[in-house]
Lab assay of single mutants.
Amino acid sequence: VSVELPAPSSWKKLFYPNKVGSVKKTEVVFVAPTGEEISNRKQLEQYLKSHPGNPAIAEFDWTTSG
């Protein structure tokens, strides 16, 4: 189950709350306009370098507050 949070234009930000008793931590995933899922800052940096014209990296908020 995921919750969609505010994201930069043409992107989606999905929040996957951890299940009770789960060892997996809460996860935030950005979905690029191409449909590619980005789950960490390093991936995001690589994606933005190879896909010019996207929002600046500073516009991506990895917190769950939206």
Rank of each mutant, 00 (worst) to 15 (best):
V1S: 11
V1E: 13
S2Q: 09
S2Y: 15
S2A: 15
S2P: 15
V3I: 14
V3F: 11
V3A: 06
V3N: 07
V3H: 09
E4W: 08
E4H: 08
L5K: 06
L5R: 05
L5T: 04
P6T: 08
P6D: 08
P6Y: 07
P6A: 08
A7H: 04
A7S: 06
A7P: 15
P8Q: 04
P8G: 06
S9K: 15
S9G: 15
S9L: 10
S10N: 15
S10T: 09
S10Y: 13
S10D: 15
W11N: 04
W11F: 03
K12W: 04
K12P: 06
K12Y: 06
K12V: 10
K13Y: 02
K13V: 05
K13N: 02
K13G: 03
K13Q: 02
L14M: 09
L14S: 03
F15Q: 06
F15K: 03
F15Y: 14
Y16S: 05
Y16D: 03
Y16C: 08
P17C: 15
P17I: 15
P17V: 14
P17G: 07
N18T: 10
N18H: 12
N18D: 10
N18A: 13
K19L: 14
K19Q: 13
K19I: 12
K19T: 12
K19S: 13
K19P: 14
K19Y: 13
V20D: 12
V20F: 12
V20G: 11
V20S: 11
V20L: 11
V20Q: 11
G21I: 06
G21E: 07
G21F: 03
G21W: 01
S22V: 11
S22H: 10
S22M: 10
S22P: 09
V23D: 15
V23P: 13
V23C: 14
V23R: 13
V23N: 14
K24T: 14
K24Y: 09
K24I: 13
K24S: 14
K25Q: 12
K25C: 13
K25W: 13
K25R: 13
T26R: 11
T26A: 15
T26I: 13
T26E: 13
T26Y: 15
E27K: 15
E27H: 15
E27V: 15
E27Q: 14
E27I: 14
E27S: 14
V28S: 01
V28N: 00
V28T: 05
V28A: 04
V29L: 07
V29I: 13
V29W: 07
V29S: 06
V29T: 08
V29D: 01
F30T: 00
F30P: 00
F30L: 03
F30K: 00
F30V: 01
V31F: 07
V31P: 01
A32S: 12
A32Y: 00
A32F: 02
A32V: 01
A32N: 01
A32P: 03
A32W: 01
P33H: 02
P33E: 02
T34C: 04
T34G: 06
T34H: 02
G35A: 02
G35F: 02
G35T: 01
G35W: 01
G35K: 03
G35D: 02
G35I: 00
E36Q: 07
E36I: 05
E36G: 02
E36T: 04
E36P: 00
E36V: 07
E36L: 04
E36W: 02
E37R: 15
E37W: 15
E37C: 14
E37T: 14
I38F: 07
I38W: 00
S39N: 11
S39E: 09
S39G: 09
N40F: 04
N40V: 03
N40Y: 04
N40C: 07
N40L: 03
N40W: 02
N40D: 12
R41D: 09
R41Y: 12
R41I: 15
R41S: 11
R41M: 14
K42V: 12
K42E: 15
K42S: 12
K42R: 12
K42H: 13
K42N: 11
Q43L: 07
L44D: 00
L44Q: 00
L44S: 00
L44Y: 01
E45N: 08
E45D: 08
E45R: 10
E45P: 00
E45W: 10
Q46T: 10
Q46K: 10
Y47I: 01
Y47H: 02
Y47F: 05
Y47W: 04
L48E: 00
L48V: 03
K49P: 00
K49G: 09
S50N: 12
S50D: 14
S50R: 09
S50A: 11
S50V: 09
H51Q: 02
P52F: 04
P52H: 05
P52L: 06
G53N: 08
G53T: 04
G53Q: 05
G53D: 08
N54Q: 10
N54P: 07
P55M: 03
P55H: 06
P55A: 06
P55K: 03
A56L: 09
A56W: 04
I57G: 05
A58P: 04
A58N: 12
A58R: 09
A58T: 14
E59R: 04
E59F: 06
E59V: 05
F60I: 02
F60C: 02
F60H: 01
F60Q: 01
F60R: 01
D61V: 06
W62G: 01
W62A: 01
W62P: 01
W62L: 02
W62N: 01
T63K: 08
T63D: 10
T63P: 03
T64I: 14
T64L: 12
T64H: 11
T64N: 09
T64W: 11
T64D: 08
S65H: 11
S65N: 13
S65T: 13
G66V: 12
G66K: 11
G66R: 10
